[in-house]
């Protein structure tokens, strides 16, 4: 880069720095408030950081019966991991069949899956709740998990991915005597790590952060996810501010960590979802 470019890009960089600062404010506020006492938070005199960080807010949070954080964390972790594993498995299987196995009825199945893709998910929550109540899934973890496992969108993306998989590799495998299952398990799946990581991280994040469906199904505190715990905490009559922010920090920290470690894959996943891959 020459001198002139560096000079003209200066205002651009300044702009970006300013917006970046704005974007970081909410993270700063979680950190600041979760380490303050109640009177420090509500003081009319602004302190940028607590002079005495209150780490005890976190231990107090885990002993507060009004906010079952540990149950919430356990539920969210189990739900997100199970959703991730089964969604990737079932979607890649179906995507492979739709892309590579010639069979009668394939177009009908593909059309059916595309049709469900058109239905806005949150709009069907009332009838899905009715079906789930009929199946006995209310207040259970599997009731929260099950609808999230089956994603027409990720089936579609896996199909597009396998359509571009080199046919020679598959044919060589078939000539070596591999069955369809063998081709899938030994050739396609090991070569799908990129798309599985990309869609998998997005699935994990979406599942951990989901709110409406867990709220509808998890009516009993034992089935609350982190998000439902936080929401209940937020709407309780007497707000305990330090613990509320400690809870927000605990709820968001695992995901920020996952995000920073897996960012490369998340970027790929975003491109997949936006049709840019």
């Amino acid at each position: 880069m020459n001198k002139r470019n560096a000079l003209t890009s200066l205002p651009r960089t300044a702009w970006l720095l300013f917006v970046a600062l704005l974007f970081l404010i909410p993270f700063y506020l979680i950190g600041r408030n979760s380490l303050m006492t109640d009177s420090e938070i509500t003081s009319p005199y602004w302190a940028w950081l607590s002079p005495r960080p209150q780490w005890s807010n976190f231990s107090a949070l885990f002993h507060d019966p009004a906010a079952p954080m540990l149950t919430g964390l356990a539920n969210s972790a189990i739900i997100a991991v199970v959703t991730l594993v089964f969604q990737m498995l079932f979607s890649s299987m179906a995507g492979y069949a739709l892309a590579r196995i010639p069979a009668r009825g394939r177009n009908v199945v593909f059309f059916l899956i595309l049709a469900t893709l058109m239905i806005p998910g949150a709009v069907t929550f009332v009838p899905t709740f009715a079906v789930m109540a009929y199946l006995g899934g209310v207040n259970t973890r599997w009731g929260i998990i099950a609808p999230g496992v089956f994603s027409a969108f990720s089936i579609f993306l896996f199909r597009q991915f396998y359509l571009r998989f080199p046919a020679e590799i598959e044919e060589a495998g078939r000539l070596d005597g591999l069955s369809y299952f063998g081709v899938y398990w030994r050739l396609l799946l090991p070569n799908s790590t990129n798309i599985i990581m990309a869609l998998g991280v997005l699935t994990f994040i979406a599942s951990w952060n989901a709110f409406l469906w867990p709220l509808v199904i998890g009516q009993d505190p034992s089935a609350w996810t982190v998000q439902v715990v936080l929401s209940t905490f937020l709407s309780s009559q007497k707000l305990n501010l330090p613990q509320l922010f400690a809870a927000a920090a605990v709820g968001v920290a695992p995901l920020v960590l996952v995000f920073l470690v897996m960012q490369r894959y998340i970027v790929e996943g975003a491109k997949f979802s936006g049709g840019k891959e």
Partner: peptide
Amino acid sequence: VGWGRSFFRTVFFIPSAVSYVVASLIWKVS
């Protein structure tokens, strides 16, 4: 941008890891 490209990308993208509930909490209470 010439400098700090991946830094800026990360900063703008990282709110995607935050849930609507947590963000609503910060917006409403703080």
